[in-house]
Simulated scan of single mutants.
Amino acid sequence: MSRLPSRERLAADRGQPEVEIRRSAKRRKTISARWEGDMVVLLAPAGMTTSVARDYLRRLLPKLLAERSARREDPRRTDAYLEERAAHVARSYLDDRVKPVSIGWVTNQNTRWGSTTPATGKVRISHHLWSAPEYVVDYVIHHELCHLVEASHNARFRKLEALFPHAGQAKAFLEGMVFERNRLEDTNADPA
């Protein structure tokens, strides 16, 4: 059996973005796709054939295109919006003590509202918050910015987090979102 290339470019169909398949031995089962500039990158297991990758791409591409279109229509769905909100939050509640190296929306966080890598200064915010009220997005940003000062959820972190005036309301809103998501999953679950 011949070895598949770790990277493979697919010829773009008319009106479609260029696609690159990136295969990795570290991936066993999961397949995902993301935008890198104007190109779609399909992340796949090392042994996945091009024809199987194309089948996955046929299912994933419409979703990626729809998300990109929605981002262009709604300025809140841009990373620039998050950068603006992060600057406002840092200035208003953290005395400009922190500034993330980067902050952006991600579509691969389904169980967290946000995440921070303190060592690199990168902040990621879940796309599930696209339609949330601004004070909720600001709260999640504030929480993640606090991690740039204090990595753990200790007393120092809780003191910083308490500087956000609408934390209780934002947490209640997020709990409601989790409740609704769980309710919908239970409703859509197949009976055993």
Results as ranks from 00 to 15, higher is better:
69 S>W: 07
2 S>W: 10
74 D>K: 02
109 Q>K: 09
151 A>S: 12
141 I>C: 04
88 H>K: 11
87 A>N: 06
86 A>H: 03
99 K>P: 04
86 A>M: 09
102 S>T: 14
21 I>D: 07
2 S>C: 09
125 I>R: 00
158 R>G: 05
1 M>G: 15
82 L>W: 03
10 L>V: 03
54 R>P: 04
143 H>I: 08
114 G>D: 01
44 A>S: 06
7 R>W: 10
129 L>S: 03
132 A>T: 03
21 I>H: 03
35 W>M: 06
95 D>R: 09
117 T>F: 00
148 L>K: 02
71 R>G: 14
98 V>T: 08
141 I>H: 02
47 G>T: 06
42 L>Y: 02
152 S>P: 00
86 A>F: 10
28 R>F: 02
120 T>N: 04
169 Q>G: 11
137 V>D: 00
86 A>G: 05
160 L>C: 05
192 A>G: 12
89 V>R: 02
20 E>L: 12
15 G>K: 01
10 L>M: 08
144 E>N: 08
17 P>T: 04
136 V>Q: 07
83 E>Y: 00
150 E>D: 10
122 K>G: 09
137 V>R: 01
37 G>S: 05
72 R>I: 10
106 V>L: 08
36 E>L: 09
54 R>C: 12
48 M>F: 04
140 V>R: 01
143 H>W: 05
176 G>L: 08
4 L>G: 07
132 A>D: 08
41 V>C: 10
32 S>D: 08
146 C>E: 08
180 E>L: 12
7 R>S: 15
175 E>K: 12
187 T>A: 14
19 V>T: 07
124 R>L: 15
64 L>E: 04
88 H>M: 13
92 S>W: 05
49 T>E: 14
26 K>R: 15
62 P>D: 04
51 S>R: 13
110 N>P: 00
2 S>L: 14
66 A>S: 12
167 A>L: 06
159 K>S: 14
58 R>Q: 14
54 R>F: 03
187 T>C: 05
27 R>T: 03
87 A>K: 12
136 V>P: 02
163 L>Q: 12
79 D>E: 09
35 W>N: 05
43 L>E: 15
107 T>L: 11
73 E>A: 15
5 P>Q: 08
72 R>F: 10
150 E>Y: 01
142 H>S: 13
22 R>P: 04
54 R>Q: 15
149 V>R: 06
127 H>P: 00
40 V>T: 01
